[in-house]
Each structure stands twice: as C-alpha cells, then as structure tokens.
Amino acid sequence: MSRDYSEHQKKIIGRYYDNRESIDSQKLSELVTNLYLETSEKKKAKHWERAEKMMERLEVPKSRIAHILEKEDPAILAELVKDIESGKALK
C-alpha cells in the first residue's frame, strides 16, 4: 500500500530520521532510569529488549552489547550512554 505524504509531512519525517541518533540516545538514557527504578522483573526484561534494539540502531559494537546484556547492570548501560554523549562509544 503506497502512501502519499504532503510536503510538510515529508519534511517532518525527514527531520525525524535526521535526528534519529540523538532521539535513540535520549531514549536509552531514559531506559537507564527506568531500569534503576523498576521492581517488576517482567518489565525489566522489556526494558532490556528495548535497550538492545536501540544499541543496535546506534551501531554499538556487538561485543559491548553482549557484555551489557550479559551483566544486566544499569550502571554499565549508563556508562555506555555517557560514552555515546561524549562521542567515543561508537565504532
């Protein structure tokens, strides 16, 4: 099904994808907070799944993703967010 977008909508969509990296970085940062505060193991598992998807989109090295997911420690994820914000985590 083909969808015709107006020029205005195309610009909004384009800006979203232009800023996708910073959006994902912000969401990953919010997930760190959620992981620290969450008490339900089921919800924690969902947060870790979302974190994994965002790290993959941000092109974090697979070895680092595996390490973070193995430990499931929000502090390690917070270090990654700090590295992403400083520009030294990727590639």
Rank of each mutant, 00 (worst) to 15 (best):
A75T: 11
M54R: 08
H47M: 02
K46L: 11
W48F: 13
I84T: 04
T39M: 03
R50Q: 15
R15K: 06
S25Q: 13
E56Q: 15
W48V: 07
W48H: 12
S63H: 15
L80Y: 10
I65Q: 13
A66N: 12
D24K: 03
P74R: 06
I84V: 13
T33I: 04
S40T: 03
I13S: 02
S63M: 13
V60L: 14
W48Q: 02
M54D: 01
R50N: 01
S29H: 15
V32T: 13
I76C: 00
I13C: 01
S25H: 01
K88V: 11
I76N: 04
H8S: 02
K82P: 01
G14H: 00
I13G: 05
E59Y: 12
A51N: 05
K53I: 06
R3M: 02
I65N: 03
R50S: 15
R57A: 12
A75P: 00
K43E: 11
L90T: 13
E70N: 04
E41F: 15
S6L: 10
K42G: 00
E59T: 09
R3E: 08
K42V: 13
A51G: 14
S86L: 10
E70P: 00
R57T: 11
G14Y: 07
K42T: 10
E79W: 06
E59R: 15
